[in-house]
Design a protein around this nucleic acid. Structure first.
Lengths: 358, 358
DNA sequence: TAGTTTTGCTTAATCGTTTAAGCATTTTTT
DNA sequence: AAAAAATGCTTAAACGATTAAGCAAAACTA
């Protein structure tokens, strides 16, 4: 009792952190016994366990994560790399990853690449340096060189990609059905009596954008509409580039009567141009975006868009990681999870009946 | 040479990570020498340093962060807590914190509280558990109990608050001049010939919102306008609550001719109501928001708002942390940095001349 | 030439936790 | 009552990097 008190005072004065050694000293047992007691080892008596927990609480003991991670060769940290956190989609994915992983005792480290390849490489190095147990990532637009991702794999660390992935990289992937989403959009626009549907697509080298382009082409075919190469544009999908591509489309002799834009920011740019030129949306030109960013329901007219189930993507990504973490390195089966998306119809593509804003 | 090769093979086969011990073995020197060589210690010969670096590269050596952190009692990680990452403001602050800290060898761990007090406490525990060297945080709206923040301070870990801080907590703080910002808004509205200016403010218990309210009241006085209690509302500042508060204001016998909303999301809600009721903005009622969220320049009419210099806030927060990290715990002087903000005038409050969208 | 300094390493302890191995007791089984 | 099993610990060696202390050998100084 005296000893215990002296320890209290020592700790509180020196602001030094309590270790299992301190607890061991107070109770006159070995540090090993303390460690086991805290982990509810069956070979430790109930009495000792209770005493250890009591003292731990009194001394305000916090386990040193670094020490246990070092010893166990496991940090219980998972790295997450996203292009930008300031989008609803990524923010929601992250939130769900966190939720699932926290329950299993993992914590996450979020990093953003800002769509820069160099930054992304840096982030990977940082995460490896921090000894994360796994990495869940969505690739930057710029990224085509996969060397750094190979580096993760070669270290034997689970790597799960979502949304922006690559076909060449043989890793787990969670995404939506971009090909089918294009079909949903084209079918919807055809229903609205659109005949000349343009597509402002993303970079062909990126898996998801390529799939959207393929879907666009095939859906046109299925609806017996001709494919006009003039109406298929490749874009960086920024608001600015959306503007430029729209201006270009309006300059054509034979204008489109609908535009499917593969990203909401570019769709916004396109809409601005249409509004400025007093072109009626959707009557003259109908517009559909992709991603369901919050602003799609804030602007005038509201923009139809594809809603990805970000929560589900996050959850699946986290679960996939957990599967890898649990199995002991052997027979890793790869998951390729493709989720369905949903077309949210708003004013920008609805000629028939007024729709409530969503 | 033979030895070196055998090591190569061993490593590559077993996928085990290279340690300084491996490098030491290859070169037949002690691990200590390797460690020093890698840290450019003056007591190690140039020849050895070159050899060590060469072997390190060949064996694909990555230092084990956990081990050095444990030994040095320093993780070189800084925790960042924000209410939500999906806002331009926080995203930009984070980016700048990261930039400054990376240069000094620190990495950051981002966590989001989702405006939940419980989640925020969890985040703090997680960060402490991860042994971060410091925490930079912006408080959740819900948070009034400061016990957890006191916990950080009591551990002797530098704590820096930004944007959402508290007067009661005696820590470093970086923010903007909310009081002056209110003045800028009111002065601007008065110039637009507004006489009855309402304020949809945030929670009074939060420092920043309280300052905005005080600024509003004092600015009215300075402009010799009467303060009408009816026109001063306390709001959660969500879009939904912005709608409700606007509807309430419109129901008054004596309507306002201008509304200053302390948050852009609530301003958006207010604008929606005004648009739905066909009230002309700014002619009938002028509107000003706060935060300069991207959508303020996307909606119709575009919303005037206060732009905070998020980049500067992030940089200052990071620098403040670095100051603490460098000084050896003695004589900690507290920084309270208040930066100026900027009023971006857009269509929603500009009666006189048309303005280009920004 | 003897003494001092500098150079270039090595040795060994340390950070805090975990865990395999071991060793008395006590309890159970035959 | 002897053998076997279970209980409740302890000892000591890790995990990988850092660092104070020390020790030869080389280089310099007087």
């Amino acid at each position: 009792m005296l000893k215990r008190l002296s320890k209290y005072i020592k700790k509180l004065n020196k602001k030094k952190k309590t270790t299992i050694k301190d607890i061991a000293n107070v109770l006159n047992i070995s540090p090993a016994a303390v460690s086991k007691a805290l982990h509810d080892d069956s070979r430790i008596s109930k009495k000792t366990k209770i005493a250890v927990r009591q003292v731990a609480k009194n001394l305000n003991y916090q386990p040193n994560h670094l020490a246990s991670a070092l010893r166990k060769g496991k940090s219980n940290l998972v790295g997450v790399i996203v292009p930008k956190t300031n989008s609803n989609f990524f923010s929601s994915v992250i939130q769900n990853i966190e939720e699932v992983l926290n329950k299993e005792g993992y914590n996450i480290i979020i990093t953003q690449s800002n769509e820069s390849f160099r930054k992304e490489c840096n982030n990977i190095d940082t995460l490896l340096f921090t000894q994360v147990d796994g990495i869940i990532a969505s690739m930057a637009n710029e990224t085509t060189d996969l060397e750094y991702y190979e580096k993760i794999k070669s270290k034997g660390i689970p790597l799960i990609l979502f949304d922006r992935g690559e076909n060449d990289l043989n890793v787990d992937y969670i995404g939506i059905n971009d090909y089918d989403s294009s079909h949903m959009i084209i079918n919807h626009l055809v229903e609205q009596d659109c005949k000349r549907i343009a597509h402002i697509g993303g970079y062909k080298h990126t898996r998801i954008f390529n799939n959207r382009i393929r879907g666009y082409i095939d859906a046109l075919k299925k609806n017996k509409l001709p494919l006009d190469e003039e109406l298929l544009l490749e874009s960086s999908l920024t608001t600015e580039d959306g503007r430029e591509k729209m201006i270009h489309l309006l300059s054509l002799k034979n204008r489109p009567d609908a535009v499917y834009v593969a990203g909401d920011y570019a769709a916004l740019g396109a809409l601005q141009v249409l509004n400025e030129q007093n072109i009626k949306v959707p009557q003259d030109i109908a517009l559909v975006g992709f991603g369901n960013e919050p602003f799609t329901s804030m602007v005038t007219p509201t923009i139809s868009s594809i809603k990805q189930h970000s929560g589900e993507i996050g959850k699946q990504a986290a679960k996939t990681f957990l599967e890898h973490a649990k199995t002991t390195d052997m027979k890793q089966t790869l998951n390729k999870i493709i989720l369905d998306a949903e077309l949210i119809i708003r004013d920008s593509s609805n000629k028939k009946s007024p729709v409530k804003s969503t």
